[in-house]
Write a protein that binds this DNA or RNA. Structure first.
Lengths: 196, 196
DNA sequence: CGTCTATTTGAATGTACTCAAAAGCGGTGG
DNA sequence: CCACCGCTTTTGAGTACATTCAAATAGACG
């Protein structure tokens, strides 16, 4: 049953009564996403926060020149949305696509606001979630500033092994901020024997 | 009176009764910090979250080779700490120093936990604060991945004009992830007339 | 005034990119 | 079932962005 996973995720930080549990579940909408389908599109509205039950999603920024920058991958048990646009109800900055056929549970902004007022302990849950997201993002900034591409690559493999084995090298390169060509060189380690 | 500033900051997101206000204020500790003094030191405990009343602070990571990476600057009306270590009660990863003589209001982890249980709407306040911090950090990641150093520099000047005019170029360079020498070149724009 | 650190400048180098072409791989239709 | 198409990955040559190291200059502060 797919609801077990999200309830277990919630219970890491707060405890719900049976009534609260069923109320919370009533706010969720199941959505099946086909491979390559976008659930958030740049410039369009982003009304939901998504909990991944199965599959894998990717959030990425697309600049004017067509270059993609991958912001995050989300596998089973992760939450994903374009947070800026979800919170501020602005057009989306990011795109979010399914890399495989996926199943997500969607919570709309309106339902979330209702949830905060009816079950205030969800403020705590999302406070902790945002805290963790902030800390993760800050650690990524430190890595981006202080480490060369090769070390960032190995760190990525260690931190996100589940994502790493299911995405293409081009996508990993765009997460690391390098070109696919250069990631290919890193992998074969040819740069160490450059001019022998 | 320095408490007005923090109360105004809090009131952006939640409303407090008089009793809650005075209880909240009773948990704060004023601390004056001399220029160049560290309030958080790598490997030591980080017990407080700090609200800047006056002055300017800088959080930075120092790697094994001695290279500094500036994580954030905090001016008046900003909050700053080593969030990972504050939340998880681990030894600090970062250093936080005053760049000028500064006055901060400190809230300890124990007091914050007490505050969450006695005045639960502070969960909401910090949820929103963490949300904003996460979004800011994510935008920075996008810039780091997609923009060259020169554009990141101009974006920094636009976003943080108050910090930019009060810190050294070396510190700005370490925020951008480049060397001070290269920032110097960017500023004079000599790279545009490189080989005339 | 002297000392210490920040900033500028330059030369040589390294890291990562662009563009182009070839090889590999996966899916689809005949 | 295999041939072909499109996309990813690899490889290489040439180039650009950014670094290192060193030295000169400029600023800040006691």
């Amino acid at each position: 049953m797919e609801n077990n996973l999200i309830l277990k995720n919630i219970s890491k930080h707060i405890s719900l009564s049976d009534a609260e549990t069923s109320y919370f579940l009533s706010l969720l909408k199941e959505k099946k996403i086909q491979k390559k389908e976008l659930i958030v599109k740049h410039q369009q509205t982003c009304k939901h926060i998504n909990f991944v039950v199965t599959g894998i999603l990717r959030a990425f920024y697309l600049d004017a020149s067509g270059k993609e920058s991958t912001i995050m991958f989300a596998v089973s048990d992760w939450w994903i949305t374009d947070m800026y646009c979800f919170i501020n109800e602005k057009p989306a900055m990011l795109n979010i696509e399914a890399l495989e056929e996926s199943l997500v549970l969607q919570l709309s902004k309106d339902h979330l606001d209702e949830l905060y007022s009816k079950v205030p302990k969800f403020e705590r849950f999302f406070r902790i979630m945002m805290q963790n997201a902030y800390i993760r993002e800050q650690l990524r900034t430190i890595e981006n500033l202080s480490l060369p591409a090769e070390e960032r690559y190995y760190n990525f493999l260690n931190k996100y092994p589940l994502a790493a084995e299911r995405v293409t090298q081009k996508q990993i390169a765009s997460y690391l901020g390098i070109t696919p060509e250069f990631l290919s060189i890193i992998k074969t380690n040819r740069q160490k024997t450059n001019y022998s």
